[in-house]
Amino acid sequence: MLNRFMQSRLRGLMVLAVILFSLPVFLSNPFHYELATQMAIIAGTVVGLNLLVGFAGQISLGHAGFFGLGAYFTGIMTGHYGWSAIPALVVGAILVGLIAWIVGRPILRLKGHYLSMATLAVGFIIAIIINNERQLTGGPDGMPVPVFDVFGWELSPFGTYSLFGIELNGSEAWYLFAAAVLLVAVWLAQNLIDSPIGRALRSVHGSEVAARVVGVNTARYKSLVFVISAVYASVMGGLYAHFQGFITPAVASFDFSIVLITMVVLGGMGSTMGVILGAVVLKLLPQILTHFQEMEAVMFGLILMLTMIFMPKGLLPTLQMAVSKRLKRRAGGQQ
């Protein structure tokens, strides 16, 4: 039984790997690669956010705050203080985790709309600080971020690299790196979900009362998942900063928080592959909608509303249900 379970877990991961690594066939120019790399990094963030929202059932409308903190911490440490990227990412993640723990303890006692309000406030406060501490962050104008490096070895979108004898340009190399990071992020998230800790987290969503009477310290688990999702955001924010080479307070903005939570809900709360799809769709949609020019916002709002009204469970779960229903009907027809 357990074997079968593991196989299904691995299958999802393998499908994702195949898609990620065969995607370059369809990517023809650096702009495509840039978009795909951004998608992978943001998808990684959303996979972490989904642990909090989809599995533990706790809303966060301020997650971009943690993404922004990660991005700016890395930017400041590598840019102003000459740190190497890896230690900056790691220390940043630890700090953001700590902040999330300190903030999370009191606010996670709140429920429903009060929790969304509190997380929104936390995100806003972070964004305002980033906007106003000009000496460190460059304020609203943003700041440049040095090239990503692994203790001296640099990964630049403008370099050339070779992997197993294949020549890669910088944007291709960055894409492969981001894809690999996403795979690891998904693997870790799946490991977490399918474990005693994961069950405890999901029980907080399923029935908090049941969780408590079987001995789950719900406050601790809520804090834990809040910290984990913040660390995900921090690391991905750091990578994003290096990839872009320039960051503005938009990475920590309320708008971006809303984009992140929308990706989760649109793709399918509680479905890891679903939220990745959500990230892809929401990142692609504006690209497609630019054809509508000034109608872009109207179309975007309309599509968002209609999708959520008619597929409240999100894209992937709704698709899966439709497919399994059809399969069942077909099986029924044959009998």
């Binding site: 069950r199 999901r202 029980s203 969503h205 399923g206 029935s207 009362v209 049941a210 969780a211 009477v213 509680g270």
Partner: peptide, 11 residues
């Protein structure tokens, strides 16, 4: 156990 059952329906 509970009169109004508390089952985690997401599992």
């Amino acid at each position: 156990t509970f009169q109004q059952m508390q089952i985690c329906m997401n599992m």
